[in-house]
Amino acid sequence: MDSPFPPSSLSPGDGHIVVSLLPAGGSGLEAMTYQYPLKLIAPSPSIDQHSILVFILSYGGGLVAGDAVNLSIHVRPESKLSIATQGHTKIFKTPSPDITTRQNIHAQIDNDAGLCLLPDPVQPFEDSVYAQIQIFRLESRASLCLLDWVTHGRSARGENWSLIKWTGRNEVWLCAPKESGQERLLVRDSVILSRDGSQAVGRTLQDVMQNIAVSGTLILRGNMMRSLGEFFIAEFDTLPRIGAQDFRSPEAKAKAISGVSDMQQWRSQRLEMEKQGGVLWSAAQVRGCVIVKFGATTVEAGREWIGSMIMKEGSIAAQFGNQSLMCIR
C-alpha cells in the first residue's frame, strides 16, 4: 500500500541544519530536518541568545552497531550556531567486527559566520566498532570551534579501552567563495584506536593508551576563536618546565603567592588540578588553526580542565552564549 505521506528525501540517520542571519539581526534556524536514529532539538531561542543552539540526540542515548548518522550543516553569512549533546554518545557493542557504527558531519561555514561544536565525549563500549568523519568547509572569514573527545568506556563495568576499533577524522578545508573550486586542506586530524593495530606491535590497546581515560582534540580557527587560540598558546608557553627545581624556601614561596594577580592564582590552581587529574596537554599553531591535544587520567578531570580553560578565557561564552558550554561544565 502506498504511504499517504509525501516521500522523504532523507535516509535513516540523515539530518540537515541551515542557520542564517535574521533580517532583524541575530541568528535564525532556516531549516532543520532529521530521521531516526538521529534526533535534533532546537530549544526556542530566548531574546538575548547569541547563537542558535541545537542538540544532537540519538534514541536511547546511543548508537547501536550499524547505525549511521549523516548530519549536514550550513551556517550562512554572519550567523552563529552552537551544537551540544545530552550526555555521552554511547557506542554499543557490535555483533560482528565488520559492522561499523558511523557518524559523519559535513559542515559549510560562510564568511563572518561561526560554528561552535562542544559536545560531550563519545563513549565506546566494550567490543564496539565506530568510525567518525567530520569535515568542515570554511570560507576565508569563517570561524570554527570543534571539540572531539573519546573516553575509555564504562569504567564502572571495568571497561578500559575495551573497544575493537574507534576511528575519528576531522578535516578543516579553506574554500574560496563563489565556487571557484579552489579548496585547501588546512588540518586533517585523525585518530585510530584499534585492538588489532596494537596487537601488531605486541601490545594491548589499554597499554598503548597508558593510563589515560579520555583523549581529546580542540580545533580553533577564525576571528571569533582568535583570542581563545592565543590564550591556549600563551598558557602552554607558561607551563612550568618539567624537571626544573624550585630552590626557594617555603616562606619565600608563600610570600610570592600572596602578592599575585587573579590570573596567576587561577593558573596555579589549574596547574595543581592538572597534576591531580593527570592532565597532559599541548597546543600548536598549524596552518592558520590552533590545535589543542589533551588527555587525562579521569574523564571528569579532562572535562574540568577543558571547561575551565574555555570559561576562564570567556570569548566563546561572550559570542555564542553560556548555553554553548553546557557539555564542558
Binding site: 577524522r169 585518530v191 624537571g243
Partner: peptide
Amino acid sequence: VEEAGQTVPVMDLWIGRHETLYS
C-alpha cells in the same frame, strides 16, 4: 593517505610537550 592517523594519542602529547622540558 586520507586514512592515515595517530594510533598512540599520548605520543602527540609527549612530542608536543618536549618544549616544556627544563633541559
